[in-house]
Computed example of a mutant assay.
Amino acid sequence: MAGDAKKLQPIIIKRVKKGGHAAHGGAWKIAYADFVTAMMAFFLLMWLLGSTTEGDKKGIADYFASPLKVAMFGGSGSGDASHIIKGGGQDLTRQTGQVKAGDVESPRKTINLKALKEEQRRAERVRLQQLKDKVEKIIADNPKIAALGGQIRLDMTREGLRIQIVDENNRPMFDSGSAVVKPYMRELLQELGYVLSEVPNRLTLEGHTDAQPFSGGERGYSNWELSADRANASRRELLAGGLPDARVLRVQGLASSKLLETQDPKNPINRRISIIVMNRDAEDAVLKNLTDDEDAPADAAPPAASQAPAQAPPQASSSAPVSR
């Protein structure tokens, strides 16, 4: 019986239900996405309003106030008036707002070249006047050079600042018929070379003599060769003072063709060295002449040399006059 009771006993199955995490909701993600979208639209609207002109704003407002009227009859905000459909232009900002590159040609800026060149000339005149004042101060401050002050002449010419060193009977720059610079003139020329190295202008050196001719100078060594040799000797002293060689544009001997004292051609004042600090116009004219000479035909007659070759002067006879 006991065995039968066991067989009839019911079997009870207990199912244990374990607790789990609650399901995650996704509603906050949707809200956050909506918020970001709204902020992006807001900032985009602010940017568009900030980059639109007042005229465009008025046109847009008029269009949305009465779109059919603006589209049919035109008016502010109607876009390109040349379009076949009024109000259907390329862009509301075409005429009064921001214009795309290439849609409308930008106005060309006109430059007054004449006024610009005149301003450059004025600035150059001021710079050359400052150089003139500086040279005068150097002459006054140096006792040795100050003793030569009467032989130094500074003036402004059409070509620029001209510095002339003239002869005196008791203090010549060179011995008679010689191209060797006197020692007391070397210091002056070297000091000038140092000062002139500080300005960018190019230089012309001219040698001059009086009208006293050499014996047999017409076919031999004459005032032309002597004046060119003296100009070259002065150039070498300027270079010794620090002047760059590239700054010398022209060296020429003019003999007695340009006298200071025309009434007395043999006056010692006619024997001189001229140093011309050229302005831009004079420099351009010289360079143009040099270019024109280079472009001349090969069979054309060569121009007169600006630098005569150095030759030993012949021994002058006692009865023949000797150039100074």
Rank of each mutant, 00 (worst) to 15 (best):
S317N: 13
V126M: 07
I275A: 02
L161S: 05
A231Q: 14
D80P: 08
Q311T: 06
G207I: 08
Q129S: 08
E105H: 09
Y63S: 01
S197C: 05
R250Q: 09
S197Q: 12
T209E: 14
V199A: 07
G220L: 04
E168G: 04
M1F: 05
R272K: 15
D245L: 05
K117M: 14
R230K: 13
E105K: 13
Y184N: 13
L148R: 13
A65K: 07
I12F: 10
K6Y: 13
A179L: 03
L260V: 04
V199W: 01
Y32L: 14
I275Y: 14
A123V: 00
K132T: 10
P213E: 03
I139K: 03
R324A: 02
M72G: 02
N279P: 10
A320K: 12
I60G: 11
P183Y: 08
V135E: 02
K137E: 01
N112P: 02
Q311C: 00
A233Y: 03
G20P: 09
D284Y: 09
L49C: 01
A179E: 04
N170D: 13
A285I: 09
K134W: 01
N169L: 06
D175F: 05
A81I: 15
L154W: 15
A71V: 00
A308N: 01
L243N: 01
S82C: 10
A211D: 06
D62F: 05
S82G: 12
K100E: 13
G77V: 03
K57T: 00
Q164D: 07
R272F: 13
L131V: 09
K288Q: 14
S306N: 11
N232W: 03
R272T: 06
P213N: 03
I269H: 14
N232T: 01
D155Y: 15
A298F: 07
M46C: 10
